[in-house]
Simulated assay, not measured.
Amino acid sequence: MRLLSEHLAEAVSLVSPLAIETVPLIEGMNRVLARDVVATLDGPPFDNSAMDGYAVRAADAVAGSVLTVTADIPAGSGLPAPVAPGAAARIMTGAPVPAGADAVVPVENTDGGVEQVRIDVAPVVGAHIRRRGEDVSAGDVVVPAGVQLGSWQLSAAASAGVASVAVRRAPRIAILTTGDELVDPGTEPGPGQIVDSNTTLLAAMVLGVGGVPLVLPRAGDTAASVLESLDGVDADLIVTAGGASVGAYDPVKAALAERGVGFHAVAMQPGKPQGLGTYRGIPIACLPGNPVSVAVTFEVVVGAMLRSMLVAPEPSMTSAIAAVGWRSPRGRTQFVPAVVEPNGTVRPATARGSQSHLVASLAKGRVLAVVPADVDEVLPGDSVGFMMSHLEILT
Results as ranks from 00 to 15, higher is better:
Leu14Arg: 07
Val384Lys: 05
Trp152Gly: 05
Pro144Ser: 14
Glu21Phe: 03
Val292His: 02
Ile284His: 05
Met309Lys: 04
Asp36Leu: 07
Gly353Trp: 01
Val212Trp: 04
Gly161His: 15
Ala61Thr: 14
Ala127Glu: 15
Pro291Thr: 06
Val340Trp: 01
Leu149Tyr: 06
Ala138Asn: 09
Val107Tyr: 00
Pro191Ile: 04
Asp111Tyr: 05
Glu341Ile: 01
Glu108Phe: 13
Val266Cys: 06
Gly331Ile: 06
Ala145Asp: 08
Thr22Asn: 11
Glu314Thr: 11
Ala285Thr: 02
Thr200Asp: 09
Gly78Arg: 07
Val97Cys: 11
Pro80Trp: 02
His390Tyr: 10
Val375Phe: 02
Val167Met: 14
Leu358Gly: 00
Ser293Phe: 03
Ala89Ile: 03
Ile194Val: 15
His7Gln: 07
His357Cys: 03
Met305Leu: 02
Ala71Leu: 06
Ser197Asn: 12
Leu202Thr: 11
Leu276Glu: 02
Ala63Gly: 12
Ser225Leu: 13
Tyr249Gln: 10
Asp231Cys: 09
Gln116Asn: 08
Lys253Leu: 03
Pro82Asp: 07
Ala373Val: 01
Pro191Gln: 08
Ala19Thr: 12
Ala267Val: 07
Thr350Asp: 07
Met387His: 01
Arg2Asp: 04
His7Glu: 08
Val165Leu: 10
Leu310Gly: 06
Pro189Phe: 09
Ile173Asp: 03
Ala320Gly: 11
Asp236Phe: 11
Trp326Asn: 02
Gly192Thr: 07
His128Ile: 04
Val83Tyr: 08
Thr333His: 01
Leu176Arg: 06
Ile91Gly: 01
Asp231Gly: 02
Arg169Gln: 09
Glu392Ser: 10
Val206Met: 08
Ser316Leu: 08
Asp52His: 14
Leu207Val: 09
Leu201Val: 11
Val296Tyr: 01
Arg130Gln: 15
Asn198Phe: 07
Arg131Glu: 12
Asn198Gln: 10
Gln334Gly: 00
Tyr279Thr: 04
Glu314Arg: 10
